[in-house]
Design a protein around this nucleic acid. Structure first.
Length: 469
DNA sequence: CTATGGCACGGATT
DNA sequence: AATCCGTGCCATAG
């Protein structure tokens, strides 16, 4: 299999190769743009719903791994498959985890955290998790793209609970947050104001004549609700003065605060690893999300028609056809590489995936490249810009799988956490040596710095390790 | 005198 | 070829 992949890669014209590479670097979010762009200019490309097994190419009817292929799997082998779904928006991330873990809450410079703080008292523990999930799913405008049912399914919670939490969030400080769009945001904000003629009319307008509202067609609105134009004007003025269709920008104020993208926080994982819920010790399930939902292929109809056509008309079409098939091939190539990569990673780093940082076994990209049979830069690209969701809900960068010192740093953190009296770097180095980890004293100091742990003399009491700097 | 951080070097990694 | 990483040496703060 490996050889086939390698040969096919080599026999491809350089254009193929170049494009495959350029696609490989992209995370799903960027790739999505590319695919959209490509599709808009190329009628030969088609998005289909059918699930096709990436290895045996059977058409599948159910979601989940291909039964034919997974049956031949060995016991406890991880299941790696390409999903036709897009990544379910955001799941959780480290920042929220820390908040939920009841640690010293950071200053709520973050909108989501500030909302969480407001609501913390009203929510049961599992509802808080849900709230964190929802808040991390908001888009740049503060809207929630996913329908509530989707959230419920992703978090395995009851739709009623989701709705309850949603209501709480949308009615908290930047009112209208986590709604599905400007209209809903405005409606929620309206809840806060007492009912009178104006607000009632405003509500009616928002509910039933939103398109008219944006066109400022006062006459038409007045006619529709059988009121005077002046009343409509009043209602619109009220909306304009007291409500904001974009709650997020209201929160940031007019001066748009540059949203500080923490490089350690990821959304929209490109890959998701889950444990089998019925058999936690069984094979891990790895889902590699598609950039767009469905499968991209060359429209077979297009192909058929093109061959019937005469040469002149078909010239442009065949250009499209070539381009389309090239693009599809490159996507497949990309998926294939990702799949092979994940198969090795998940098999060899199972402990790391389940148990945490400490269990990471250092693997270099180069060694992996050799085993898969591709150039090392291919692996570099495949690993770059990808986020991966772990079974415990954390979303980390895929490159973290190649952090040489992660496990050691984790032990150091633990040593410091459990110490009664602060250990010096030298002592820590000695302790590590007893655990068969040999590092120089100087290196311990470096790791300490990376983890933001103060030097021994500075941490007399139990100084909790802060965030990264 | 001891524990650390800065600088810089060589080897590995990308 | 460029970058990252672990380390040794040395100055310095405590």
């Amino acid at each position: 299999m490996l050889q086939i992949q390698d040969q096919s890669l080599r026999t491809l014209p350089t254009a193929h190769l170049a494009q495959t590479m350029s696609l490989l670097v992209l995370g799903n979010a960027e790739l999505r743009e590319r695919v959209m762009q490509e599709m808009s200019g190329n009628p030969a490309l088609e998005l289909v719903d059918e699930r096709v097994c990436p290895s045996c190419h059977r058409i599948l009817k159910h979601n989940g791994p291909c039964p034919a292929c997974s049956r031949s799997r060995q016991e406890n082998e991880p299941i790696v498959f390409l999903s036709p779904r897009e990544s379910s928006r955001n799941i959780r991330n480290d920042a929220f985890e820390e908040f939920l873990a009841d640690q010293e809450p950071a200053a709520p410079e973050n909108l989501a955290l500030s909302v969480l703080e407001q609501l913390a008292a009203d929510l049961k523990p599992d509802e808080r998790k849900l709230a964190a999930y929802i808040l991390s799913s908001l888009d740049d405008n503060g809207f929630l793209q996913d329908p509530p049912v989707y959230i419920a399914r992703a978090t395995r919670s009851a739709p009623a609970v989701v709705q309850h939490v949603l209501d709480l969030i949308s009615h908290s400080d930047p009112a209208g947050l986590a709604t599905s769009g400007p209209r809903e945001a405005l409606l929620v904000q309206l809840d806060i104001y007492p009912e009178n003629k104006t607000t009632i009319l405003a509500r009616q307008i928002l509910q039933d004549a939103f398109d008219l509202l944006s066109r400022r067609d006062n006459d038409c609105i007045a006619k529709k609700f059988d009121t005077s134009v002046s009343a409509v004007r009043k209602a619109l003025a009220f909306i304009h003065d007291n409500l904001t269709p974009y709650p997020m920008s209201a929160y940031w104020g007019s001066g748009r605060t540059p949203s500080t993208p923490d490089p350690n926080v990821f959304h929209n994982p490109d890959i998701l690893i889950t444990r089998n819920p019925v058999d936690p010790d069984g094979p891990l399930i790895v889902e590699i999300f598609a950039a767009v939902s469905g499968w991209l292929r060359v429209n077979p109809l297009f192909k058929k028609v093109q061959s019937k056509n005469n040469q002149e008309t078909s010239e442009e079409w065949s250009r499209h056809l070539d381009r389309a098939s090239l693009f599809v091939k490159c996507l497949q190539q990309r998926n294939n590489t990702m799949r092979q990569l994940m198969e090795i990673l998940v098999r060899e780093q199972r402990k790391f995936i389940i148990a945490g940082d400490r269990e990471l076994i250092p693997i270099t990209r180069a060694s992996l490249a050799e085993r898969i049979g591709v150039h090392e830069s291919t692996i570099s690209r495949a690993v770059a810009n990808k986020a991966i969701g772990l079974p415990d809900g954390r979303i980390i960068s895929l490159s973290r799988f190649f952090d040489r010192s992660l496990s050691i740093r984790d032990r150091i953190k633990e040593i410091v956490r459990n110490e009664n009296k602060p250990f010096t770097d030298e002592q820590i180095a000695a302790l590590l040596k007893t655990e068969k980890i040999q590092v120089a004293r100087r290196t311990v100091a470096k790791y300490r710095a990376i983890e933001g742990i103060l030097p021994a003399r500075m941490r007399h009491k139990r100084a909790v390790a802060g965030m990264r700097g």
